[in-house]
Design a protein around this nucleic acid. Structure first.
Lengths: 343, 343
DNA sequence: TGATACGATTACATCGTTGAAACAGCGTTG
DNA sequence: CAACGCTGTTTCAACGATGTAATCGTATCA
C-alpha cells in the first residue's frame, strides 16, 4: 500500500509532524528540511490517507448528489455541471440514485451516508414538505427544484409556474385554443408537476380558455415512453388538441414520435413544446421549442450555497442562523424552435 | 455531531468494544446485553463514522467510476447500471469526469483519489497502452471498452471491430455500394474509433468495395454537432454516400438532422446507422438502426470483476497473480430500425 | 552575561473504530 | 479437582493524520 507519513519521516530523518507540516504548507520549516522531506515524499510517492485525515479533521471533502435518474438527460446534463463546479472547489462528488422512489429519497434525507459526506445536493421528486421538515440529519443540504418548504433549507430553482405559464402563452399566441398538457401527476407531492400544471392553467384562464381535464391526463413518469403513450390517448379524443405542452423534453420527444408516426405534421397539424432544453431537442426534427433553465447557473449556485453552509457550520455546531441568501431563483429562457413555429 | 461508540457505550453501561460487536453482528453477545445496547444505539441515533471505520479496516466502501462525460447518453445509461450494480454490493460510487482529456485520464491512472477508493472502473478515451502499462497505483482497476493492453488489467467490452463489420455488412446487404463512415479519429490512441473503422474497412474489403478516405473523414469528438458537421461535408462531395455508418448514436442523430434538413429522405435517399443504442435513437424519426451493447451486462460484469479483485488483493499484498477471468467479452445485438430499412 | 524572543522541530494525545488477545465465569470431562 | 473448553466481555494497541504544547537552538537585546 501507499507510504504513510511515518515512512516518509523515517526516510527523511525527521519527525512525522514535520512531514505533516511540509505537506500542509506550514510556514516555519527550514528550507533545508523542507527539501529533504520533499525528496522523500516524491521518492515514496506519498499520498495522504484521506480516511485518516478526515477522521482527524472531521471533513471528508466529498459531497453527495442525490437525484432520481442519472440517465435522464436533464439530470445527466445537470450532473456534469455540478461535478465541474464541485471539482473546482476541490470536492469529490458521489452519486446517489433514488429512482424517484419515496423510500430511497427518505433514506437520503435520513443521512445514510452522513458520515461520509460533508454536504448534500438533493433533487427530490416524491418526498414532500413534511418529510423534508422532519429531517434530523444535520449534514448541510441544498435542494434543487422548486422550494418545497419555508424552513431553513436552501434551494435553487427556476420559477416553474411562471415558465410554464409563459410557454402556454406562447402556444396561445400562435392562435391555438385547444391546448393539451402532458406531465400532470397524481401524486400530490409531485411538486414540479403541480407547479407546471398551475402555470398552464393560469395561462388558459388569463386567455379565457376553458381547462379541460381530458387534455391534461396524468403520466406515470417523465420518460419518452410516457409521452408517447399519453399522446396516443390525446389523439384518440373526439377533439384532439392543436398544441401540446409537455412538462419535460423527454415527454415531448415521446409525444413527437407518436405524432409523426400518426401522420401528423409538426408544427402544422400539431404544435409541441417541451421543458428542460436537453440536447436531444436541439437535434430532433423538428427541433423542440422548450424552456431552457440555466443549468450551469443552477449547478454553480447550488455548489456555492453548499460551500457556504459547510464552511459556516463549525464541527458540532448548528449552521449559522442566517448564512446568506438561501432561496435562489435561477434564470431560464423560452426558446422557440421548429416544433411550434415553422421557420 | 453524531454519537460515537463511546457515547453509546456509556449510555448502555458496557465497553466500547461490546457496542462495536453488536453493531457488527458479532455472535457472542448475551441477548440481554444486545438489547440494552440496541436501545442505546437507537436512542442516540448512532451512525458509524465511516472515516474511522475505513481507516481501521483499510477499506472505504467507495469505488470510482471514471468516464469521459456524464452527459453523453451512452455513459449516462451505463453509469446508472454501474451504480445500481455497485449499490447492490453495498458500495458507493463516486464519479470522475475526464472530459476525455489526456491529462485528466492520466491523473485517474496515477490515483488522485487512491486513498479514498477501493477500486476503479475506468473508461479511457485518449490514454494508450503505454500509459496504462506505466500505471503505478495499485488500486484495483477494471477497464471499460476494448482491451488496450495485454497486461494484468481486467476489462469488459464488446468486440467493437466485429460489431462494426456486421453493421457495415448490413448496409452492404441493402445494396449500398458507397458507404460512408463518421467517427474516425486522428489521435492514434483513440482505440475504439480505430477498431470500428477497422471493422468497417474489413466489411468493405470482404465485399470487394473500395475504401475511400473522403467517405470517412475524422471527427473532433463524438457529439451530435460533430455528426451534423461531418454529414454536411459528406453531402458536399461530388458523389455523396448512399449510406453512412456513424460510430455512435450521437453522431448518427447529428447526421440525421443534417440529412433531413437537407431535404433527404431517410432511409430512402440515405441510410443511416449508429452504435450504442441510446434511448434517443428509439424515439427519433426515423428510429435508428444501431449496435446495442448489453449495458447492464457490461456494468454488472465490471462491478463483479472489480469486487473479485478487491476481495482478492489483501491489504498490502499484490492482487493474486491469477484471480479468474480478466477479459470479458460482452454481448451485443444489431438492431435494425427505420433509418436503414423502411418498415 | 543572562533574559527574551522567535524559528524550527518534536512528543504526545486524539479522532472513532476494530482486531488480537486476555480475562472472567461456568459447565464438562477425565 | 485440575484442566479444558466455551461464552461473553473487556483491555489494549493500532490504523494515519494533525492540533497542542513542549522543547531545543540560536540570535537579539538590555
Amino acid at each position: 500500500m501507499g507510504a504513510s507519513l511515518k515512512d516518509v519521516a523515517a526516510l527523511a530523518g525527521v519527525s512525522v509532524k514535520t512531514v505533516s507540516n511540509v505537506v500542509n504548507g506550514y510556514t516555519y520549516v527550514a528550507p533545508h528540511t523542507r527539501e529533504k522531506v520533499e525528496q522523500a515524499l516524491a521518492e515514496l510517492e506519498y499520498r495522504p490517507n484521506l480516511s485518516a485525515r478526515n477522521l482527524r479533521r472531521g471533513r471528508t471533502g466529498v459531497i453527495a448528489l442525490a437525484l432520481p435518474e442519472l440517465d435522464a438527460p436533464y439530470f445527466a446534463e445537470l450532473s456534469r455541471f455540478v461535478i465541474d463546479a464541485a471539482v473546482e472547489r476541490g470536492w469529490t462528488v458521489l452519486i446517489d440514485q433514488t429512482d424517484g422512489l419515496a423510500d430511497r429519497e427518505r433514506e437520503v434525507l435520513q443521512g445514510i451516508r452522513e458520515q461520509l459526506i460533508d454536504g448534500l445536493i438533493f433533487s427530490p421528486i416524491t418526498v414532500g414538505r413534511e418529510e423534508l421538515a422532519a429531517r434530523t440529519d444535520s449534514t448541510p443540504m441544498v435542494l434543487l427544484g422548486e422550494r418545497i418548504m419555508d424552513g431553513p433549507t436552501h434551494h435553487v430553482a427556476i420559477d416553474n409556474q411562471r415558465a410554464a405559464r409563459e410557454m402556454t402563452e406562447h402556444l396561445i399566441s400562435l392562435g391555438h385554443t385547444r391546448i393539451g398538457a402532458i406531465g400532470a401527476q397524481e401524486n400530490p407531492s409531485a411538486n414540479t408537476a403541480h407547479l407546471r400544471l398551475a402555470g398552464y392553467r393560469q395561462a388558459l384562464e388569463a386567455a379565457g380558455l376553458p381547462y379541460d381535464e381530458r387534455l391534461a391526463p396524468p403520466t406515470a413518469s417523465y420518460h419518452r415512453a410516457d409521452g408517447a403513450a399519453v399522446m396516443r390517448r390525446l389523439l384518440e379524443l373526439d377533439e384532439p388538441p392543436q398544441a401540446v405542452f409537455c412538462f419535460n423534453d423527454l415527454l415531448a420527444l415521446g409525444a413527437l414520435r407518436t405524432a409523426l408516426t400518426s401522420g401528423l405534421r409538426v408544427p402544422d397539424d400539431l404544435a409541441l413544446a417541451g421543458f428542460d432544453d436537453i440536447e436531444d431537442g436541439r437535434y430532433s426534427t423538428p427541433t423542440l421549442t422548450t424552456i431552457s433553465p440555466d443549468k450551469a447557473h443552477i449547478a454553480r449556485t447550488a455548489v456555492e450555497l453548499l460551500d457556504a453552509r459547510i464552511s459556516g457550520s463549525g464541527r458540532g455546531g448548528r449552521p449559522a442562523e442566517d448564512d446568506g441568501q438561501r432561496e435562489v431563483e435561477a434564470d431560464y429562457r423560452l426558446i422557440v424552435r421548429e416544433s411550434t413555429v415553422r421557420p
